[in-house]
Design a protein around this nucleic acid. Structure first.
Lengths: 222, 222
DNA sequence: AATATTTTTTAGATTTGTCTAAATTTTATT
DNA sequence: AATAAAATTTAGACAAATCTAAAAAATATT
């Protein structure tokens, strides 16, 4: 079976939306896809016909096993291409989404497996989101807001909460990227900002907003 | 201006067909695109509306300057992706066309320029066809049938006449690829086959058909 | 519980790219 | 030059994916 670009985009959106709310509402999907609720109803019926979703009138959609499998394949392609764009073609983080949206719809299993091989089977994309493997299996990793972490404990950046150029600029300024190790030294109650030390550089202060956007895992540091 | 995949495929086909016959016939295009003549007429009118072609009823189509420019951009993308698939992702020659047909429609000028840079600005694709540069300029190279070349003169393979797996298998068997140097030692009138020496290996005999499919340029050999 | 509001679906229309069948024009043949 | 054959275009239809406006169902409010 092969699917149209529109179908694939719906499946991907349902997947992302149902991570939060078990059943996805028509209006919610319409907003995510920047389309009209009536169009969503039409397409959902088509996906039901193709046995990719569970659906009952007025109740919402949910992927079935086949739909989930397809969603993971598409997300795998999207994130592998993002990794390629950033690591091989030297794109910035903030420039990859739109292009990956197009590349993810190219259908060739050989292409994607060879790309995966060439890239060295990466498990996380440039934003820290996991890349499903060929079987759809996802590697999990802690993604805790930096702000909530205990002081003086070493942590490592695992993901970022948004993909904006503004955040990228900020992180470059502070020499922070995925995998960077740092720890909180103290926090300021005045504005919620925190003082951190990145690797072995001298301490710097970052805003509460930034500290909330950075996601980390706990690490043992030597 | 941006164009649909269908429009891009028509433009590309017109470009290739008009290389031979100045004006492209409706039936000819229909056959190349595996569609009906009536569909071609419809689309050609649309391309006329977008000012990409010259067209007169019952007379045929021809690209104008804008159409040619677009065609060269698409061909550039197609051939750069083919080069990538063969040289970076280790595809065989004969496996790339279908995938490149999809990749060529991804629209992002940054993508294609970064890809070109990563690949080292190749000027010829894996079949020996020239890759237009950013401005649409094409590098020319001799493409003479090996069969017609004078005996004992060194030549270099510049292109191949088809993209079949069968030809690829044949060339791998003889250790021949693009850039390989060889010369004709003698020819046999019985079946038109020729004896050649490839690089400094011992002489082998190849069929007339193969010798016609291999395209070469003359080189000075030391 | 009745009514108002929101959400969702249905009905009917539109655009893109295609099709078949019939009509028209061009080209070839007698 | 008349006629036959081939090529091309027109007319009308269809599937995919979307839209707007109206109807129906579910939810919230009084």
């Amino acid at each position: 079976m092969s699917y149209t670009i529109a179908e694939e985009n719906y499946i991907k959106s349902v997947y992302h939306l149902q991570q939060q709310s078990g059943m996805v509402a028509t209006n919610h999907l319409a907003e995510a896809l920047q389309t009209q609720p009536a169009s969503v109803t039409d397409m959902v019926k088509k996906l039901l016909g193709k046995k990719l979703v569970h659906y009952e009138r007025y109740k919402g959609v949910r992927l079935n096993a086949a739909g989930k499998k397809l969603a993971l394949q598409i997300i795998r392609k999207h994130r592998l291409w993002e990794y390629f764009l950033v690591n091989t073609l030297e794109f910035g983080w903030d420039e990859v989404h739109e292009v990956a949206e197009q590349l993810e719809h190219v259908s060739s299993s050989k292409l994607i497996e060879q790309l995966d091989h060439f890239l060295g089977h990466p498990r996380f994309d440039p934003h820290g989101d996991p890349i499903p493997d060929k079987q759809g299996k996802i590697a999990y990793q802690q993604r805790l807001p930096l702000l909530d972490q205990p002081h003086r404990t070493w942590v490592e950046i695992t993901a970022v909460g948004d993909e904006s150029p503004a955040l990228l600029e900020m992180l470059r300024h502070h020499h922070i990227q995925l995998g960077t190790r740092l720890r909180i030294l103290r926090s300021f109650s005045f504005d919620g900002s925190i003082e951190i030390s990145v690797a072995d550089h001298k301490p710097v202060t970052i805003s509460q907003q930034l500290a909330t956007t950075l996601l980390v895992k706990l690490v043992e540091h030597d």
